[in-house]
């Protein structure tokens, strides 16, 4: 990725709160994974979450669309509280898109069918409209010509871009990225990051678990550092990288920046 600055005119943070996490705790059996997590996200924010492996970053964002259950505290997405109410869960999942580390494309469906599956069966969109919309997003991630291939025929970077397009087809208001580039070969990372930057420039609210610090510097308006299931510190990227507050953050940054 080039170090050139990007056009940030479309990135505007509003006052509207879209995600609110209050005193959230989570356990896996006896193991305390998330400890007293508090986080407020406004519309238009681009948040990068980093931290050593096992620090609970993925678990936290997976709680936001209820792929994981939390046991204490509150999570509100778009003003709706996440409980066991299946209707609320489905409603929230429609508003929140998610991109996985391992893409999780459906191997038995073509790229186009991957993109139209949820709009057709969840939003009840007519097939033609769903396909038009899918082609629109596939062009946006720059692979409209692969629409009729199967995921297995694409490279990792292409697959991840399809996964992004697939999420966008539901017109989500928030996008979650769970280490979207960790399973990719180095030369494919930038094509995925470019797509994500473009998304940010259009004002999408994004929460992104990643170790791509270049991406964080350019796009994020906030960087969160997690360790041991807690948010240790959060700051604007410039401050965060030049002047980390806690010792653990300093150690972590020195490990990932000077290798």
């Amino acid at each position: 990725m080039s170090e050139a600055a990007i056009d940030t005119s479309g990135m505007k943070v509003t006052d509207e709160v879209v995600i609110e996490i209050q005193h959230m705790h989570k356990w896996y059996g006896e193991f305390h994974v998330l400890k007293n997590v508090n986080l407020t996200v406004n519309r238009g924010e681009r948040i990068v979450i980093c931290g050593p492996s096992g620090s609970g970053k993925s678990t936290m964002i997976r709680c936001i669309n209820r792929l994981e259950e939390h046991q204490q505290g509150h999570i509100l997405v778009d003003g709706i509280e996440l409980t066991n109410d299946l209707k609320n869960i489905d409603a929230i999942r429609r508003e929140v898109g998610m991109v996985f580390q391992h893409f999780n494309l459906f191997p038995h469906l073509t790229v186009l069918e991957n993109c139209t599956l949820a709009p057709i069966w969840v939003r009840q969109t007519p097939k033609k409209d769903a396909e038009e919309q899918a082609m629109h997003f596939l062009s946006k991630v720059k692979i409209p010509d692969q629409a009729h291939k199967y995921p297995g025929q694409l490279s990792g970077g292409q697959q991840q871009r399809v996964a992004i397009a697939r999420s966008l087809c539901m017109n989500p208001r928030i996008m979650l990225f769970d280490e979207p580039t960790s399973a990719l070969d180095p030369e494919m990372i930038s094509e995925v990051l470019d797509t994500m930057i473009e998304l940010a420039q259009e004002g999408m609210t994004m929460l992104c678990v990643t170790h791509e610090m270049g991406f964080a510097r350019k796009v994020a308006n906030r960087v969160i550092f997690m360790d041991g299931g807690e948010i240790i510190e959060q700051n604007e990227p410039e401050e965060f990288f030049t002047n980390p507050q806690s010792e653990r953050t300093k150690l972590f940054l020195s490990q990932i920046l000077n290798h």
């Binding site: 489905d90 429609r94 996985f100 459906f106 069966w121 999420s167």
Partner: peptide, 27 residues
């Protein structure tokens, strides 16, 4: 059928029974 497949379908807002019908059973 890997767990990631059901998770991906759920993350798209597809309900449990439709996930079975559209994603799990065909695979």
């Amino acid at each position: 059928v890997s767990h990631g497949q059901t998770e991906a379908a759920h993350a798209l807002g597809i309900s449990n029974s439709r996930t079975l019908q559209l994603v799990v059973i065909p695979q």
